[in-house]
Amino acid sequence: MSLPENLPLFDKIAEHMLDVMYFDLFRYIVTASVMFAIIVIFKGWAERRRIQERRAKREDYLREISSSIRTVFFFGITTLSTLFLREAGIIRFHFDSFPIAIMLLQAVAMILAHDTYFYWMHRALHTRALYQATHLHHHKSRTPTPWTAYSFSVWEAIAEAAFVPLYLLATSLLGVAYIGMAILVFIWFQIIRNVMGHAGVEVMPAGWVDNKWVGWINTTTHHDLHHSTFNHNFGLYFTWWDRWMGTEHPQYKERFRAVAKPLVVSPRLAEKLSVVMMAGLASTVTLSGGLASMVA
């Protein structure tokens, strides 16, 4: 397929390639920083809910942050490629006016599709043929921290980033023009859930795994057990695939109950929490608005 001679959007994005990289980098930094700040500021709460006795070391933090910067580069390349394919008419998405209900439906569909993609991609990376070259680097973080979220090898970063263009290509071939805001909702949901899964302390409330309405949503303990045992809990957002495929850790609920202590919220604690969350929300809105205006 020949590409159009004039690609104004691609030219615009190419000129601002660093802006695209900054968006992915600061999305990671803001989310990981908010989670890290919560753990530091609410130290008593975090210590009561710490999943492992083992602690990450200084070299672990340095490795995670440096490799995450590398991951951001490949994510940025994927963003540029996706925008180029959009301008070429191969991928369809827009930021025009849209019904909120349709946008939310598309975001949910993308999240469900990504959960499936991630589970099977993740299991593939654990095979003997691929593990050492792709996923071993991520598992060097035996005790995860919020900064582990993007700590990937080059090949895993590419596999992780491939989902968005592949998904949008599939929906475009089916005649679905995706709403750009649905994609933004998805990518923020993805990084927030990813950081939560690597927090090292359980963030979900007591009783979560025993509640039929939310028990199928993954907890920090769920993914933390994957880092400490390697052969269980491959899912990202939900427990469905692990349950269906028999890969859920047999002691998952027991381990969760042991660390998920009830939260007692004092006025001082509530004040600290509101400040941290408002700072994170303000950063999220600013960064998302900047990207949307750039590609609209």
Rank of each mutant, 00 (worst) to 15 (best):
I65E: 03
T286M: 10
G280S: 02
L281Q: 01
A46G: 06
M1V: 13
V209L: 02
M1P: 13
G175W: 00
S66E: 10
Q132D: 11
S288L: 04
F95Y: 12
K43V: 09
S67C: 11
T229A: 14
W208P: 00
S151Q: 04
Y61T: 15
A296R: 13
R123S: 00
G89F: 09
D11S: 14
D96W: 06
T247V: 07
A206K: 14
Y61M: 10
P144W: 01
Y61D: 09
D19G: 15
T247R: 07
A129C: 05
V285G: 00
L18M: 11
L104K: 04
I179K: 10
V201A: 05
E254P: 04
G180N: 02
N6S: 10
S2R: 12
I41G: 07
A56F: 09
A199P: 02
S172Y: 12
L125F: 09
M121G: 04
G76C: 05
L287N: 05
D19M: 12
G89R: 11
D60P: 04
G235E: 04
D60C: 06
S153A: 08
A129V: 09
D11P: 04
A101W: 15
I158F: 08
H249M: 05
A206W: 11
S33R: 01
R257C: 06
Q190G: 03
L273P: 03
F74V: 03
